[in-house]
Amino acid sequence: MGLIKKSLLKSLWVFHLPLSPCNNCDIEILDTLTPKYDLERFGIQLVGSIRHADILLVTGVPNYKNWQKLKYLYEQAPKPCFVVAVGTCACGRGVFKDSYNSPANVDEIAPVSAYIPGCPPKPEAIIDGIVKLINILKNAKK
């Protein structure tokens, strides 16, 4: 594993994008940064601008008002950038699947690298998902 890849995996900066969520997943995401779980051990930190991000963390269901914003944000992110869907809504829209206001899944708009299901997922589950993503990237060819 080269230095370039190692430095990427050791410092993943996260941009948190809520797509009309119920705020449940967002609170659990904030929990992972609190002293009990402390994701900064792995070099993960929340950033304010998409230009700084390595991970686009999506929660909630895309609707007609905001699905294009997800697309724009993904296009604006400097590559390599990975999309992570947190919660049942972001993974497969859950009970909103046949809603009149929901055009598409998250993974139909932007390529999703990791799914973390749960309503809401526990902080342990989110950390587990991120660790699995890191392991997949570690074993990938590039």
């Binding site: 230095l3 370039i4 050791k10 410092s11 402390d38 051990r41 070099g43 400097p78």
Partner: peptide
């Protein structure tokens, strides 16, 4: 909290170099 490892800022810098 536990805090980041010793070379965290080096990793951050090298990662940003290659973005």
């Amino acid at each position: 909290r536990e805090g980041p490892p010793l070379l965290q800022n080096l990793y951050d810098f090298f990662k940003l170099l290659n973005k």
